[in-house]
Computed example of a mutant assay.
Amino acid sequence: MTGVPRVAGSLWSADRARVGEEAARLADAGLRHVHWDVTDGDFALAGGFEPAQAEALTASTGVVAEAHLMVRRPLRHVDAWTGFCDVVTVHVEADAWQAAVDRIVRRGRIPAVAVSPDTAMSTIDSLPASVGVLVMCVEPGNAGGAFRPRSVQRVRAERGRPLLGVDGAVTAARAAELAGAGATWVVSGTDLLRAPDPAAWLTAVRAGDGRPTG
């Protein structure tokens, strides 16, 4: 079966007093990418991370950082996150998102566009292949929310895009199904954090069998 080459761990649902420990634990288990959620309390519920904290934790664990800007005006936030993240994602529903994408490119990073569950995928029909797509399987900022089954079809509609991701309620089993639909990138928080053996979870998702052991 086809696995997922890029697996990013979100620390949104981690105990904030233990974020550093959780980041280190996942890095020791083999996590290579950490997904930093950024919110403004308007576009999505408050609860995201600040760039200084995220940059320090990224450096201390040796993983690669990516940012997900769940904010109304992403252009204001781009420079802080492109300083240390390889991929920066903005929402297609946000103000001036195209300008934010252009700024990410000018800053030498990879841009991606997130599409919320109730937004038509046709909104990004003209998006160049060089821009990644992150299909949201729950409402932005709704960690622990129910997976939207229609997300599989939405991923399939973008199949072939080099950077095609899913975010929200992604379990190891769902990751295998989504990889089969064309996903090359998955973001997981709750399921990965709660896995008895995160190393086995990561191995299963990368292999595409959806059956973590341990």
Rank of each mutant, 00 (worst) to 15 (best):
R211D: 13
A52N: 05
E21W: 09
T184H: 04
P162E: 10
P198D: 03
L26T: 06
A172E: 08
A207C: 07
W185K: 03
P117N: 07
A100E: 00
G180A: 12
V166E: 02
P198M: 01
G160V: 11
I110T: 15
G168A: 10
R109Y: 12
G30N: 10
V187A: 05
D191W: 13
T39N: 03
D167A: 05
L69W: 04
V133H: 02
R154A: 02
A157C: 11
W201L: 01
D28Y: 01
V87W: 09
L164W: 04
A8W: 01
V19F: 08
A56H: 13
L75I: 15
A146G: 13
F84A: 05
P162I: 07
D15H: 09
A176T: 15
A175K: 01
F147G: 11
A199R: 13
V205M: 00
A112R: 11
Q98C: 11
L164C: 03
R211I: 12
V88H: 04
D125K: 14
R161N: 03
G208V: 08
R154T: 04
G208P: 07
G168P: 08
P5M: 09
F43L: 11
I110V: 14
A65F: 01
L163H: 00
E21N: 10
R76P: 02
R150D: 15
A59N: 11
L192S: 09
V170G: 04
R107S: 12
A169G: 12
T123L: 13
A120W: 11
A143N: 07
A204Y: 01
A181Y: 09
L127N: 00
G83H: 14
T203I: 00
A27D: 00
P74W: 07
D37P: 03
G9H: 08
W81E: 04
A67P: 01
T58I: 08
A96F: 13
A200D: 13
R206C: 04
G9P: 09
V4R: 02
A27Q: 04
R106E: 15
L202H: 06
A67G: 03
P117Q: 05
V101G: 00
V64R: 14
T58G: 13
M121K: 08
V4P: 00
T171W: 06
V155K: 00
R156F: 11
G41S: 08
G132F: 05
A181R: 07
L69P: 05
V63F: 06
A94N: 02
M1H: 15
A59C: 11
V115W: 03
S151V: 08
A114R: 01
E93W: 06
E93A: 14
A175Y: 02
I124W: 04
A175M: 07
G47S: 12
R154I: 09
E158A: 10
D197L: 10
G41T: 07
S60N: 12
A179R: 00
G168K: 03
